[in-house]
Write a protein that binds this DNA or RNA. Structure first.
Lengths: 167, 167
DNA sequence: TTAAACTTTCAAAAATAAATGAAAGTTTAA
DNA sequence: TTAAACTTTCATTTATTTTTGAAAGTTTAA
């Protein structure tokens, strides 16, 4: 396999993976492209390489910057803007999980809290509902915390220990 | 908030959360409904409660069973089939992560392996590509293993210890 | 200033994903 | 058997999401 083919395959795969996880395909593809580029890329080049429109490129770059995983870069003497991706994978994972937590998990937890604290009269049905949603609240909270803290441990002794034992 | 309202809110929220994570809304809603039901539910009742068609109910129940998180149940003297959800949350998480790993992560890893092992000539560009995709491969592999092993630790001493320290 | 070079916005179009429902298939009781 | 009771399938329709592209907006060099 030659370089160009490999690069394309990577971008396509990353895009497909993204859309299976609720991230739009183009956004994931742009991110993939920037990840494997050794230097900042202009919007024009992104459009060209992914065969997408200006508007699409612009909106998804904006979204990636909102997620904090793509940065604008200015080159001396250049009018255009260039873009780079966060390339440190621990940092990337940390930012993604922080954003998803903020945007999706936290609001869901709020609702779970609400519905799990209704007054559960006496029917078995209602009791089960309260019981199950309470468990779910605790579980999601725990999972969210773990994800949140996970990256802090990535390169340190405890993380390594845990990984070792987990093997 | 009264029971019915709370139940509905829960089902809607779970559905929305699902679709943000690449699981179709109805599938997530059916799962939510079964999760908080203290007894097995017939297809008829699911259709009624979620206001969906027979075909939709059938296909999504099938998908949920393929994921191994919903079971068919037969009641003595009843012709119809009834459905229940996996209610043990650790088990649920374990099954979901196993399935996603099998369906999405593993194939992606295969591609990552492929593209990261091209011969990297001498250009900085190609070297960077190989370097970055190799790192990504290692990272995804590690993350996949962690998820895989995580649930094994959920209720045991080490898991608790790690969680405690993580706080 | 101003006009060229560039980016963003957003209504409309296109693409994709999900849902419907009727026909086909299956199971079971009689 | 067979017919009633139920489930599954899948071509078509509907809904949702994404993309386009032209107009509006912004920035900067002269």
């Amino acid at each position: 396999m030659e370089f160009k083919e490999a690069k394309n395959k990577f971008v396509q795969t990353w895009g497909a993976l993204g859309s299976q996880w609720g991230i739009n395909k183009t956004m994931a593809q742009i991110h993939a492209l920037l990840m494997v580029s050794n230097e900042a890329v202009s919007m024009e080049d992104i459009m060209e390489e992914l065969q997408i429109s200006r508007g699409n490129a612009s909106m998804n770059l904006r979204a990636l910057m909102d997620w904090g995983i793509v940065y604008k870069e200015y080159k001396a003497g250049e009018r255009r803007e260039f873009f780079t991706a966060e390339k440190d994978l621990d940092e990337l994972a940390s930012k993604i999980s922080r954003e998803r937590s903020k945007r999706e998990i936290k609001p869901a937890l709020k609702i779970l809290k609400e519905v799990s604290t209704i007054e559960a009269k006496d029917s078995a049905e209602e009791k089960h509902f309260v019981d199950q949603t309470t468990k779910l609240y605790d579980f999601v909270l725990k999972a969210d915390n773990m994800l949140d803290k996970m990256t802090e441990f990535n390169e340190n002794w405890l993380g390594k220990l845990v990984l070792k034992i987990m093997k």
